[in-house]
Amino acid sequence: MNKGIELLNEGKMEEAAKFFTDEIEQKPTDPVGYINFGNLLLHIQDFERAEKFFEKAIELDNQAATAHYGLGNVFFEQENYKKAQQHFQQALDLGLKEADVYFLLGISFQKQDHHKLSLPYLQRAQELNPEEEAILFQYGLALAQTSQVDVAKEVFEDVLKLNNDHSDAYYNLGVCYLYQEDVDRALENFTKAVEIQPDHLLAANGKKKIEELLTD
């Protein structure tokens, strides 16, 4: 089984599948083999079959947190965020308290426009993995969406410390400054976003409107 996981991580799907199949045949009542095969199917975006393998694992052991996490990923990838949310929550309740679970649960709430509900999960994900750029950025967005502009601004600045070429962080930092009526700093950040990503339409539009305002 460990060899199968190693092969899966190396992208050798067919070889990994053989090891996982052998594991299932040797231990048909052990959910782990089904979870690993489900992860393989998820990796190749065979969502229908992946769902069946994770469900089989849960049928064998309804306390299998990683099976619920896998099933949550299946629904998340298909943009069924309500079902994804339910399974990520179940994974947490069963003890899988890892940054990725909190992060994806938070994003599932965000995708349903439940920004206040997303916030504590994204905050916890950030606490568990403070150097992960994607988590930090989404946490900043959740703060901004719940009108916590001062804190959001600090978080976007922290994102830029991790990646000084993060155009979306510059754009959202610009929005924060605009919200605080600091037009010059907003323009500065919109301009930086466009320099990094010339096709950043939101930043370009914000930059254009501020320049027109200043001209007038």
Rank of each mutant, 00 (worst) to 15 (best):
H114D: 13
H114T: 09
E77V: 06
H43P: 06
F54G: 03
N36L: 07
L104I: 03
G33F: 00
Y102V: 01
L117M: 10
F88T: 05
K12L: 15
Q110M: 12
M13C: 08
A57L: 04
G11T: 08
N62E: 11
E10T: 10
G38I: 03
M13H: 12
D113Q: 14
Q89S: 12
I44M: 03
L119V: 08
E23P: 00
Q45E: 15
F53V: 03
A57K: 00
A16D: 08
D113N: 14
L104E: 01
E48T: 14
N36Q: 12
K83W: 08
A99H: 07
N36S: 10
H87P: 10
R49A: 11
K27G: 07
A64I: 05
K116Y: 15
E25G: 03
T21F: 11
L104F: 12
D22T: 14
K27H: 14
I44L: 02
Q78I: 05
A99C: 05
A57M: 03
L71K: 02
A50Y: 00
L94Y: 01
I35F: 06
K97G: 11
K12R: 15
K18M: 15
A16N: 07
L8R: 07
D22K: 14
A67G: 11
F75V: 02
D61A: 09
G38L: 04
D93W: 06
L71Q: 01
N73T: 10
N36K: 09
R49L: 13
E59Q: 09
H114A: 13
I58H: 00
D93G: 12
H115C: 10
G70D: 03
Q112A: 04
D113S: 13
D46R: 09
N73V: 08
N62W: 03
T29F: 11
E77Q: 14
L104M: 10
D30F: 06
L117E: 13
Q63Y: 11
E98G: 08
G72R: 05
H68F: 14
Q90W: 01
G72S: 07
D113K: 14
L71D: 00
E55F: 05
K56I: 09
G33I: 00
L104P: 01
N80V: 11
F88I: 09
F47L: 09
E51G: 05
N73L: 13
F109S: 02
H87D: 08
E79C: 09
F19L: 11
V74T: 11
N62T: 08
F47K: 07
Y102L: 02
H115V: 04
T66D: 13
F20Y: 06
Q78L: 08
G95H: 06
F75T: 00
H43F: 14
K83C: 10
G11W: 04
H115Y: 15
L71I: 04
H115G: 04
S108M: 03
N80K: 10
G72D: 01
G106P: 04
Q78W: 04
